[in-house]
Simulated assay, not measured.
Amino acid sequence: MTAEDITELDKNIIRVLQGDFPLVAEPYKTLAEQAGVSEEVFLERIRDMQATKKIRKMGAVLRHREVGFSANVLVAWEVPAARLDEIAQNMAKSPSVTHCYDRNTAPDWPYNLYTMVHGHSREECEQVVKQLGEANGVSKHVMLYSKHEWKKTAMKYFCE
């Protein structure tokens, strides 16, 4: 796929999708109006761009501090390799976990599963981590608390 494969209409729709999602009854209608097309055309183009892999995913960026989650911790877990998928799926189901992914280990770093846990306090985060560990039979982990949030932005395309 080259840049020429993306039409000007598609670029305009992508630009609109990169902004704030309108909190209204018909958000795609509002976005379509911003793009200068009907809602039907807007949704059709999104489906086509997904089908042709021009758009791989669409998702929300939660600014967790703005909604009251003032504590967050990256937890690195040492999980048996044979149970990695099972445990990761279990942990990812927790409403307090926003990210869950596996990583390679190193000789001095045995942790292979990472979860990002958000809470209203450190105590709440620690309770969630304790529950996750107990529910999955995993005890070895390290908790890396965020001290400062440096960046909370998404990539922007076709904004030249």
Rank of each mutant, 00 (worst) to 15 (best):
T2Q: 13
A3R: 10
E4N: 14
D5Y: 02
D5K: 12
L9Q: 04
D10C: 08
D10Y: 03
I13F: 12
R15D: 03
V16P: 03
L17Y: 05
G19M: 02
F21M: 11
P22E: 03
P22H: 07
P22Q: 02
L23S: 07
V24P: 01
A25M: 13
A25V: 11
K29H: 04
K29A: 11
L31E: 01
L31C: 01
A32D: 03
A32M: 03
E33W: 02
Q34A: 14
A35N: 03
A35F: 03
G36F: 10
V37M: 09
S38K: 05
E39Q: 14
E39W: 04
E39Y: 04
E40I: 11
F42K: 09
L43K: 15
E44M: 08
E44P: 00
R45V: 13
I46C: 05
M49L: 11
Q50M: 14
K54H: 03
K54A: 03
K54S: 02
K54D: 01
K57F: 12
K57H: 08
M58W: 05
M58R: 11
G59K: 10
R63N: 14
E66Q: 15
E66T: 06
V67A: 09
G68M: 09
S70T: 08
S70L: 06
N72Q: 13
V73E: 06
L74P: 00
A76Y: 12
A76G: 04
W77I: 08
V79R: 07
A81C: 00
R83H: 12
L84Y: 12
L84S: 07
D85W: 01
A88Y: 01
Q89V: 01
S94V: 05
S94R: 04
V97D: 00
R103C: 02
R103S: 04
N104W: 03
T105Y: 11
A106G: 13
A106M: 13
A106C: 00
P107V: 06
P107S: 11
W109E: 14
P110I: 03
N112L: 00
N112E: 02
N112Q: 04
T115W: 08
T115S: 13
M116P: 00
M116K: 11
G119W: 06
H120E: 06
H120S: 08
S121K: 08
R122E: 08
E123P: 00
Q127W: 02
V129W: 01
K130G: 00
Q131Y: 01
L132D: 06
G133M: 11
G133H: 10
V138A: 12
V138R: 10
V138S: 10
S139E: 07
H141S: 14
V142D: 03
L144P: 00
L144Q: 06
S146H: 12
K147N: 10
E149V: 15
K151V: 11
Y157I: 05
Y157H: 15
F158N: 03
F158L: 07
C159Q: 15
C159G: 07
C159Y: 06
